[in-house]
């Protein structure tokens, strides 16, 4: 890849530049439904969301994860990202801001590559944990 940054001296405890997106609008949920192929009405229609026991529409978990992914691909070129996983810890609703952060928790070598393991998370503006995950990136 063409990026010239040197990641080899990234240390354990280093933080990933945070990324905030929001407030998430209903329009964005509609656009993401179309673009992602997830047409589940609980993200689009309050009435149907309530029929499913929710207070109203909720944000797609995969939209939150896509935003968390942008924090990673904004930090290192996406070709350096080997693994990206996340647990969906809580639901988010329109109006929420998604705040993503990460911290390097380990460095190791595997198959001739220098890797960093990064603990990542997304929270809403109230500090509720929405996503808790891990990523592995190539740093050298």
């Amino acid at each position: 890849m063409t990026e010239e940054k040197d990641y080899a001296d990234i240390g354990i405890g280093a933080s990933v530049p945070t990324l905030s997106r929001g407030p998430i609008s209903r329009t964005q949920l509609a656009l993401f439904a179309g673009a992602s192929g997830d047409h589940n009405p609980i993200h689009l229609d309050d009435e149907q969301a309530r029929a499913g026991g929710l207070d109203g529409v909720i944000v797609h978990g995969m939209l939150m994860m896509a935003i968390l992914g942008q924090m990673l691909s904004g930090w290192v070129s996406q070709a350096r990202i080997k693994k990206f996983s996340s647990r969906f810890a809580a639901m988010s609703v329109p109006g929420d801001t998604i705040i993503c952060s990460g911290i390097v928790v380990d460095k190791r070598e595997e198959g001739g590559e220098k890797l960093a393991d990064v603990e990542i998370k997304a929270e809403n503006q109230k500090g509720d944990a929405l996503l808790k995950g891990m990523a592995t990136v190539i740093i050298g």
Binding site: T2, E3, D38, M62, G69, Q78, A79, I81, F84
Partner: peptide, 16 residues
């Protein structure tokens, strides 16, 4: 220019 063969899919696109 960034080194990809063509336009890359974003990280979570494979789920779609």
């Amino acid at each position: 220019k960034a080194g990809y063969r063509a336009i890359p899919a974003p990280l979570t696109f494979p789920y779609s």
